[in-house]
Write a protein that binds this DNA or RNA. Structure first.
Lengths: 84, 84
DNA sequence: TACCTTGTACCATTATAAAGGTACAGATCT
DNA sequence: AGATCTGTACCTTTATAATGGTACAAGGTA
């Protein structure tokens, strides 16, 4: 039906690339069955900002990510990078 | 000698609060023995931005965090929040 | 006493994130 | 055909992040 019907991980790893972060947000939003308008209403963030953040065409602020993560039930962790 | 001589965790958890994120960055910078000027030179970010980000008095962009994390050898992970 | 380092305070300017509107294309309906 | 929904493409305006300079206070050192 769509790419979002595949088995979804409950854990994502982000290597600090803005495009990957956008894909993660869009994926998670779809999983929860929300539209961009829905998420905009929930967070109070404009649809423009959400759309562009999901596509990685803009550099969002921490506050924007904070709000989006809250309503997508996501949390961020920071670790010291392992040495290879 | 200072608060940074205590045993330091190799893992931090950030519950999306900008003040905590700032403390984490400052702590990590101190652990690596870097000054704000050092980090500014490494990342290309101004000392003003770094200082205010560490104190949580400003809302940094993702790009700024990306750069800081890179030179502090930190990485970000995103997880689905566990239900209580 | 200097002198140097570090971090913060303060300011003006520039760059750009965010908002909020309209319009449009594609898909999905009746 | 039309109507609706969704996401993107625009555009303008506003808010504010980021820069880069100076100055100053606290601390350490010679």
């Amino acid at each position: 039906m769509s790419i979002f019907d595949e088995i979804l991980p409950i854990y994502w790893y982000i290597d600090m690339k803005i495009e990957e972060l956008g894909k993660l947000i869009k994926n998670r939003r779809k999983v929860l069955g929300l539209t961009i308008r829905d998420l905009a209403d929930l967070t109070g963030i404009s649809k423009t900002t959400i759309s562009q953040t999901e596509r990685g065409v803009r550099n969002p602020t921490f506050e924007v990510l904070q709000n989006i993560f809250e309503y997508l039930n996501l949390e961020m962790k920071v670790e010291v990078k392992e040495r290879k």
